[in-house]
Nucleic acid binder design. Sequence first.
DNA 1: CATTGATATGAATCCTACG
DNA 2: ACGTAGGATTCATATCAAT
Lengths: 359, 359
Amino acid sequence: MNEKNILNSILQGDCIKLLKEIPDNFVDLIFADPPYYMQTEGNLLRTDGTIFSGVNDEWDKFENFEHYDKFCYEWLTECRRILKPNGSIWVIGSFQNIYRIGKIMQDIGYWIINDVIWAKPNAVPNFAGTRFQNSHETLLWCAKDKKSKYCFNYKTMKHLNSDKQMKSVWDISICIGNERIKDENGNKVHSTQKPEKLLYNVILSSSKKGDIILDPFFGTGTTGAVAKLLSRNYIGIERETTYIKYAEERIKNVQSEDSYLVSNTLDVKPPKISTKQLIDLGFLKDGQLLYDKTHSKSVLLLNDGKVLIDNEKLSIHKASALLLNKVNNNGWDFFWCEYNNEFVSINSLRYLADKKGGL
Amino acid sequence: MNEKNILNSILQGDCIKLLKEIPDNFVDLIFADPPYYMQTEGNLLRTDGTIFSGVNDEWDKFENFEHYDKFCYEWLTECRRILKPNGSIWVIGSFQNIYRIGKIMQDIGYWIINDVIWAKPNAVPNFAGTRFQNSHETLLWCAKDKKSKYCFNYKTMKHLNSDKQMKSVWDISICIGNERIKDENGNKVHSTQKPEKLLYNVILSSSKKGDIILDPFFGTGTTGAVAKLLSRNYIGIERETTYIKYAEERIKNVQSEDSYLVSNTLDVKPPKISTKQLIDLGFLKDGQLLYDKTHSKSVLLLNDGKVLIDNEKLSIHKASALLLNKVNNNGWDFFWCEYNNEFVSINSLRYLADKKGGL
DNA sequence: CATTGATATGAATCCTACG
DNA sequence: ACGTAGGATTCATATCAAT
């Protein structure tokens, strides 16, 4: 398999067979929406007598749990091999299958980072009044192993959530309206198309611009469409010709965004430049005062980059924590100073130094 | 074991050993809050330097998944034996353990009715910003097997939810404030005490007044307290003397409610009396007219309890459906008639006939 | 054009007692 | 076990027709 040619393309054929052809440690992120093995029987009638058209596809039929487990064990094992050491994987499912999936993933060696609940405000009701309305699905987000340094764009997601850290429960509507792909007769092309907002959260939170994202159950290509939107690369695997046809047309029409969200600017680490280096480069001066943002407290900067406070020599971090009556704090955001007649944060001087290539 | 003496008491000792002593098909409902096997290491520090006091109890320690699985397989197997054929079981867990529990339950033969998400509006935040805030736990609600006629008080729960059918996602605050049991030093007695509102939903939805409820991990007795409140019987199993002491004191102080909720009045089936029987008993008369509630449409009642509409002889259900342009409908609620100079629903006549003991 | 109301539909383990 | 008849059940949203 040519490793470059498969980027941003859909491989047609059997999922496990094609996964086996992809090299080790190749992708940054995997999103998998496997068959749920729903085990429904007969028709479900609404109270008005119409038939509810749910999932009745051949691809969702298995003989029993044993066969389903074996299938999942195999594709999940291949996915783990393909995943880069610091990559991560999302798998979506419902109560019919997700407990089997989760147990298998833990056994294989995946490390669960979160289980995320997709809460649907407009889920299908329970027509017969026989149980609680099943109004959610579950996503498992896992690292390749416990030690892996997976990607999580914490600040980006916090920013998207009104500056509160994002929770493990996501309220997202099901895929309906214009977003739902229909054929020439107006029938839905895929019985389980996922909403783009769901993939938007998944991809934006756990990958970087330019990353490679694999979807082994590509369907009508929601993963590919959102990957392109967010300037990530995708690899799709899908068996059905019809799904592929609609997916390709759909992705072709997507325009890539270019925004601070796409680049995860909020989560990009600041340049690694120390206070000592800022002194050496002339952005700070030995003996000057550093202030808090309100200009009400000050400390003295020493020539080794530490600061003097209450006759103690401390790092900017410990000093700011002391002033805030905390144990730890980020001094880069706390301390401000005069620079070229402006009052700026010392953190901004790091970006300035980095930009000027003084290092 | 004396079967009557264990009602509304706490059995002290090893969970599996004590479960083995309980007879087959003995309880109506089980609520289980087993150890989660959290696998946490070291201390978690808040940014203010204080230590977050999570679960660090001996009872949550296991050597590995294999040991944990074996433990769960055993207590879940005993619970299934103890459950009445139409009984059901709730198990609560988090992502660390619930996937193992769910898979084991399916393998044993339990049939998942719902998985319910307990969404916590006031969950512990993620202090390190390394993942999504883990703001939910998962409950598995299962029948003894696929064919079992489990109890679900659909209308009661719908009533509690502003007359919309209750969803699989429940917003409930974690157990804090006065509800949280503290020792004489003000420290929490149990590290994972569950909120009573959670047990209230569990017990009210899936049991009847007077039922027997078993909790094999009784802790400080939330299940017992809510069972007593709702006039159900409980059996607790707990190893720790301290927990038992607080649980007994707590339950002693609970006053049983007596309300239509406790009795699940909304879900009590109406008396099984047919229209034919109502005619025979004199509550309805052959040849009289039945109307819709607005008195705008009428059908003729025949001597066999069926009605005449458009020259067709139909059951009250099919006739009402026809008038509503539906396939099925409940005729008892649809049709009204004159009775003792009052305009009443024919359903109310069933209750009247039942009350008068005419049958 | 704005508003109202009828209709359609979505990953669903969707009835029960009796003969 | 299986068929049959009786009886009990739906929420949010999009679309489109009607006013």
